[in-house]
Amino acid sequence: MMKADIPVIEALDLSKRFGSFTAVQDVSLQVEKGEFFGLLGPNGAGKTSIIRMMYGFSPLSSGNMKLFGLDIRTGWREIRSKIGVCQQENTLDPDLSVEKNLLVFAGYYKMSRKKAVRRTDELLDFFALNHKRQAQVSQLSGGMVRRLMLARTLINDPSLIILDEPTTGLDPQSRHQVWDKLRDLRSKGLTLVLTTHYMEEAASLCDRLIIMDRGRILVEGNPEELISKYAGASVVELENPGEDLKTFIREKQIRHEELMNRIIIYTDDSEGLGKAIRERFCPEKCLFRSGTLEDVFLRLTGRELRE
């Protein structure tokens, strides 16, 4: 049995190199039982590389990776029997029906026929796919494909699931439905690792997250902490700021970012600066909002395009 004090995931000085290119460098992280953990970063930051090392698909270049206290190098088969992985691309089997996708996958886990059938029924119910049981994968909508991918991820009743961009390309309805299902699973004690490009998703689902760039971890913390530390409680956005405002900001040493013809001011409302700016510099075209994880992400990883 797993002791409560063994972390579900323990990565130490993890590195992944492809020839002379370093995709992941000296990353250490730990995920506790029952935690929802987020991996954020721009394209090419090394998120998928870390995930592939987590489930023993990519060999580590250096460092250590343990899941449930087992070394991934030697215990990969046992580890994989206890986890579920939802890859970025659609890897459903297009040669099989919805139902058979789950039943056949159960076979890869040596599950008995009886248990596989029961589990398939439960999951088709849970993800509202019962009416599509006999359909071919090609007949499913994008949202249904994702739900079936998630159902398949859960077929072996895993205690950890690893999701690589689970809601990319979904409409808001489908996305919220996926979130609801994941929250439901959290209440049942599941541990989850997730990568995403949607900051709102990370903020609403993750207990703790890291933001990475160029193979390294930039920050780690829970979403609220990170927002208050790196973005501030409230944000003011202005178009075409005047010189007087810029001077004011510099004098008061307020955190801000100057973009092409826009300025973003991160304020901590305790000093009433937001109010001052509103009254003195904001006759029109001024947006007041609270700080978000997206502000944190963009401040830390910059705004230039990556690919």
Binding site: Y55, Q87, Y108, R152
Partner: peptide
Amino acid sequence: YQKTFDAMLSTPLS
């Protein structure tokens, strides 16, 4: 095209 092997290699299959 179908990425079937990728899916299999996330299960206990070698």
